[in-house]
Design a protein around this nucleic acid. Structure first.
Lengths: 173, 173
DNA sequence: AACCGATACGTTATAATATAACAATACCTA
DNA sequence: TAGGTATTGTTATATTATAACGTATCGGTT
């Protein structure tokens, strides 16, 4: 089995989707999850929020608020910054968008994020792709060290920058 | 032993210094460490950098770049933003100042940070105090999960917000 | 000492990110 | 359909950060 075969992947949603992954299907599922996330929380996924979310979820990259404005502007709707920020706030509250703190940018949650399992963010500095991966051991270790110091943790930000598997492979060729 | 005694602490530099800790001594040591950090790296701790660092290290809080400008301005030197940002850049490169990514702010490294042991940031949302604590288990877990995904980690940001031991105690009174 | 290249700093302008304040509209639901 | 709440529009402004370019200073070399 060579590296160039089109053998089906084991996972429908690998942490780092390759450049050629079927993003149409991926996006469709992500939108569905967003809809239920709003529904189950009793929140409204309005047209504005849906349009903003669709832009963010159009890729697996983090996107600045003003990027979103420009992209939606190119499609005919010039939004004020505050409108986009409010949409982002609602999407974040619903848990379908996260903020990449180290980049002042926003990315869609493409994973099922079942229940409350916590994820860390892996961000490839070459292809800019972002993946969230479950990492309970990391959060367990954080709780341990926090409790050693009598610290009561509230929000936990873990953002790792580096090279994703695809870019590591390319770099070694 | 009541909670109001002035019993000496076990550590000269606890992760979260109490409100009444001897910051004069603390600052003095922090400045010394900064001087050697610049020296060993062959970098210059200029007057501007020293003044900026002294402001940042005046507390265990994170400070915005414009806060620094205002504080130094109150002391007679009105600096342009870019000057402060350049100083911060140099101080960061020397490893004596870190950026709190989730707050776009900067804080002094008050710990010895011996060798290359990695630290996570604990940030109290009540008293705003920041502590860096060694947490090798956290970084080990991060390496594990990264390698599972074929990810080659480069920079690692771990920022935990919550309540420090002092504020937990106050809140429970 | 005089020179020279590199580093640091000053000055001005502007980019990039984010929120405040208040008016208008849309949406529930009684 | 009336009235309250949530959402969006509109305008202005706050906050964070960098670009571009000139001047000064430092440190090593002749």
């Amino acid at each position: 089995m060579t590296s160039k075969t089109t053998t089906p992947r084991k996972h429908a949603h690998p942490a780092f989707p390759g450049p050629g992954h079927n993003h149409v299907a991926c996006l469709s599922q992500t939108l569905d999850r967003a809809k239920s996330a709003f529904e189950t929380r009793g929140l409204r996924l309005t047209d504005l929020r849906l349009r903003v979310f669709t832009e963010i979820a159009a890729s697996h990259h983090a996107m600045g608020a003003y990027d979103i404005i420009e992209r939606l502007g190119a499609k005919g709707t010039r939004l004020a910054p505050v409108s986009v920020y409010r949409a982002i706030e609602a999407l974040t509250a619903a848990g379908v968008v996260h903020r990449l703190e180290s980049a002042n940018a926003y990315f869609a949650c493409h994973a099922a994020h079942a229940s409350q399992r916590q994820h860390i963010v892996l961000s490839c500095r070459t292809c800019r792709t972002i993946a969230e991966v479950a990492a309970e051991a990391v959060f367990d270790a954080i709780e341990d060290i926090a409790s050693v110091h009598g610290f009561k943790a509230d929000t936990r930000i873990v953002e790792i920058s580096g090279l994703c598997a695809h870019c590591v492979e390319k770099a070694s060729q």
